[in-house]
Design a protein around this nucleic acid. Sequence first.
DNA 1: CTGTTAGCGCGTTCAG
DNA 2: CTGAACGCGCTAACAG
Lengths: 342, 342
Amino acid sequence: MIRRRVTIDDIARQAGVTKTTVSRALNDRPDVNPETRARIAEIANRLGYVPSATAKVLRTGRSRSLGLAWPSFTWPGILSILRGVSDVLDELGYQVMLFPLGRGEEAERDLVFRVMPSLPMDGLILILPPGMLRYVGELANRGVPVVLIDDRIEHRDRDFPSVGTTNVMGAREATDHLLRLGRRRIAMITGPMDQDVSRNRLCGYRQALEEAGVPYCDELVVHGNFESHSGRAAVQSLLESGVRFDALFASNDPMALAALRALHAAGVRVPDHVALVGFDDVEATAFTIPALTTVHQPLYEMGAAAARTVVAAAEGRQIERHIEIPTRLVVRESCGAATVPD
Amino acid sequence: MIRRRVTIDDIARQAGVTKTTVSRALNDRPDVNPETRARIAEIANRLGYVPSATAKVLRTGRSRSLGLAWPSFTWPGILSILRGVSDVLDELGYQVMLFPLGRGEEAERDLVFRVMPSLPMDGLILILPPGMLRYVGELANRGVPVVLIDDRIEHRDRDFPSVGTTNVMGAREATDHLLRLGRRRIAMITGPMDQDVSRNRLCGYRQALEEAGVPYCDELVVHGNFESHSGRAAVQSLLESGVRFDALFASNDPMALAALRALHAAGVRVPDHVALVGFDDVEATAFTIPALTTVHQPLYEMGAAAARTVVAAAEGRQIERHIEIPTRLVVRESCGAATVPD
DNA sequence: CTGTTAGCGCGTTCAG
DNA sequence: CTGAACGCGCTAACAG
């Protein structure tokens, strides 16, 4: 059985006032007689009144809901971000609407020119692969609060605020960890060098070596592309080249996992012969044997920070242009910890 | 610079007609002069008109958007479901709003009594942990289309339609695979026996044995609780009991992964000494050495099916009460395949 | 402290 | 084929 929706008019009638007064009372506005307010609250409650978000939006232009644009196809890490966003927004009383960007550029255009103007979103959180920022700048022009989450880019001063992480420092800590364990011939598998993130992680690696006074050695650095198979290829090429190495730092976990497997297949023992470190802290790293030491990306926290930022912007508060959340080294078994000096 | 929103009134004025006509033209209604229609379309386009979803909802009561209630805290599998839902809804032109249920029962009540009546959702997809179905029945009463996704319950005839999977058959196939490989002493780690899913998977195991004429053996069955550590405990208890076994079927992957590790630690070789199979096909299973054979849960497809179903219901079409999507055995290395007879 | 009036943008009668 | 008038539910001037 479907009964008609209870409106402020119904309450007004029962309370013997106008809907204006009801509206004021229910929204905790000043200038309402405490008694009247109480009476209205009681009636609203008794009638099971629930405000119509739609009508409110139409009138006020604000909806307490945000869009979350995500590349639905990729990468499990997105789940952590989503959780971070969702938890914070839930707490702040905001709703989240999901916009998959799987269709690529067309989807982005749709979002910017059709969906956002149509739907009542107070702001937008973007989780975009690098290079997909074709149209979203337009939103910033239009005054829509937008925050970008990207573990790959450490950019300030772009079109809109962003949340990132410390790729350089993460890589430096990882490398440093290997150095402290006494490893000196540390090989590295990079990501695709046209991406900031790859350059940054390589940079961190070099910094650590330099600080430790260990010479950088070109033949120890092999280029990968963040895909699993390139991790395997990298190991093969290292082994074939005959270059000696006692540690391996892979720029991301999929490559590290593949490397582990390739080393295993070649009879190289981890961590005895070669200590291995990855980057990202994907779920699987905890389950391999040996479990993989890796650099944890604070994705949950990044999502949470982005959510807080965009809400702040939507509510007209001042916000930071760029927030950077530190990575954290997760030491597991693949480095043969135990013997850490300090 | 913020310009005022373009409305049908603006178009009407330019076209020299009323907004009534514009509305009709833009919504592909009959009874509009083709010329007028074309002219209106042209003007709308030129002005960059975007309909206000809010106003439409207020007027029509339908929003082309659905709610997706999810227990944000748990289980990576949720990502696949989310993708399935999101992809289908994107294709059908529906929006998805996320409702985290992390706060538990209170969150559910909120959703049912505050959020759904307030927001203009045409339907709701529920991903709920078993036992959390306290208030949602009320939505069904109110005529809101609701579909439940649950890999754990194979229930028909409940309050609302549901999408599930074939736990019994999946377990039977897994066990059968081990039998075909010549294993006869197949141990099993169950889930918590108060859950349907655990009973079903055990049931599948027994069916397979029976069909193969292999006697069911009580001391080969150890009870776990789906948590990692219970997988380790189960292996320890099997080893300590001294019972001979040449295969192990774990009721889910976390337990299987832990079991792999425990066997490894005890010097038991997988698959040589013991063939191992899990259930769920979580990401990590592909990365262990040996990679884990497991039963794939069609989570993506379940999400997709649920989305299609709830849309159908929202649009007044007839729907099935229960959809069951088959599991699929993913053969990797932990059973020592190769020698499969047929 | 409260009521009157107006309108957010749209779809839908009911007349022509 | 088209227009006039109305209302979805709510908030915001402006009066009193």
